[in-house]
Amino acid sequence: MEYTDNTAVMELHNVQRNSQLNLETVNIQDAEVFYPSRMNEIKEVEPRSVQPLLVSDTINTPPFTTDSTYVHKPFIEANTLQVDLNHLKGDCIIPVFSKDNEKTIAHQEFIDIVMNTALKLFPHHNISNPEIRVSHQIKARTPDAIYKSAKDLLDHEKTIYYERMAFIIQIPSIVDTINGNELALTLGGVRSYNLENLYNKKTFEKFKFFIGFQNKVCCNLCVSSEGFVEEMRVGNYHELQEKVIHVIQNYNTQSHLEVMKSLSHSHLTELQFAQLIGRSRLYQHLPKKEKLAIPSLNFNDSQLNTVAKDYYEDESFCRNEDGDINLWNVYNLFTQANKSSYIDTFLDRNLNAFEFTKGIQKALNGNSKYLWFLN
């Protein structure tokens, strides 16, 4: 195991992988929808044989205590609602693929797979309860309430599920500090049924998964390309678990932390920041041909307004007295603004914020296509 100041390389062991499972052999009950009472009959995913990850002690692993230093904020806001795992398991139906009546992998099953994997890979660390945010509630009713008006429906006659769901699981005993901000290792994912064709037969299902860090000061997520899969296509539970393990295995904590720490050593003047915001607004309206020659920036005008406003007003990441701002703070202004994104674009924009800030850092040295945003 290699050690560096305040960081560590996780020593990862090979996972015993089974041969690829045939989707047709998976035993899935036939039902138009799965009601909570039937959900309990579904067999749990059998634990996979995995070796724990060894995390160096040079990443701080303090004894677990209830931390009242930080005010908890949602990791995503927009139009989302916070729910708990019991609500998903007990109150929500599970949509199916309509042409063959095969059930989808439910939101709660995705969360359980990631949680169980985290418990096995980090057996000597504290694992937080999942923080779950949902949106786009889909409502229906039971057949016996077909003739009732909406106001007369009883609770047991209503059915719901959520089209979009995002969650994070924090490992608060694995932390590091950047520019005075404490970061905790965090895993999470997104499931959006709007990205599936539920009107067809069952096919590969799509998930987003990441491992990265959460800034405990503002609860912003820090996501890198090594720790994020934009479209994880799986046919069953075991494939999903194996791919989650694979992402964790290939995530390099040391590399990610070093890049983020380097951002605090680069600065923009007030004039450069103003140029950056102005160019970012122009970028949205560039002709397509010109836009293709410039690295992408996926933030909209409303989010750029938030970045500009927080440059002056944010308590943790605003400019200094001279008007300068370091790129670590710029990065967090963008990830803070990203909290207004819908669930299905949230992680993609978070990664874009990281790549964009790294590009601006290179542009300050005069060797990046991102120079367009500063000139």
Rank of each mutant, 00 (worst) to 15 (best):
E11F: 14
H13W: 00
N14S: 13
Q16E: 05
S19T: 05
T25P: 01
T25G: 07
V26E: 04
F34L: 14
Y35C: 10
Y35V: 14
L53E: 04
L54Y: 04
V55W: 03
V55E: 02
S56V: 00
T58S: 14
N60D: 13
P62T: 11
S68A: 13
S68L: 12
T69C: 09
K73W: 07
E77C: 11
V83D: 02
C92T: 06
I93F: 01
I93Q: 00
I94A: 05
P95R: 01
F97S: 03
S98N: 06
T104W: 04
A106D: 12
V114M: 09
M115P: 00
N116L: 03
T117S: 13
A118P: 02
P123S: 11
H124A: 15
S128E: 14
N129S: 03
P130W: 01
S135R: 09
I138N: 14
A145E: 07
K148Y: 01
K148E: 11
S149T: 15
S149V: 14
L153S: 10
D155T: 11
E157T: 12
Q170N: 15
I174Y: 06
G180D: 12
E182L: 12
L183K: 08
S192H: 04
Y193A: 14
K201H: 12
T203K: 06
K208I: 04
I211M: 05
N215D: 08
N215K: 01
V217A: 11
C219F: 12
E226A: 14
E230V: 02
E231K: 15
N236Y: 04
Y237L: 15
H238M: 01
H238G: 00
L240T: 02
K243G: 09
V244E: 01
Y251G: 02
H256R: 01
L257W: 01
M260C: 07
S262W: 00
S264V: 05
S266A: 10
L268R: 00
T269S: 12
F273Y: 13
A274D: 09
A274M: 08
S280W: 06
L282H: 13
Y283W: 12
Y283T: 10
H285N: 13
L286H: 06
K289Y: 04
P295C: 07
N298M: 12
Q303S: 08
T306F: 10
D310L: 10
Y312W: 06
Y312I: 03
Y312D: 08
F317T: 02
C318V: 07
R319N: 13
I325T: 03
N329E: 00
V330N: 03
Y331R: 05
F334Q: 00
T335R: 05
N338K: 11
N338A: 15
K339E: 06
K339Q: 15
S340Q: 07
D344L: 06
D348H: 08
N350W: 00
N350Q: 10
L351C: 13
L351E: 05
L351H: 10
F354I: 06
T357Y: 06
Q361A: 13
Q361T: 10
A363E: 02
A363Y: 04
L364M: 10
N367T: 07
L371A: 13
W372N: 15
N375V: 12
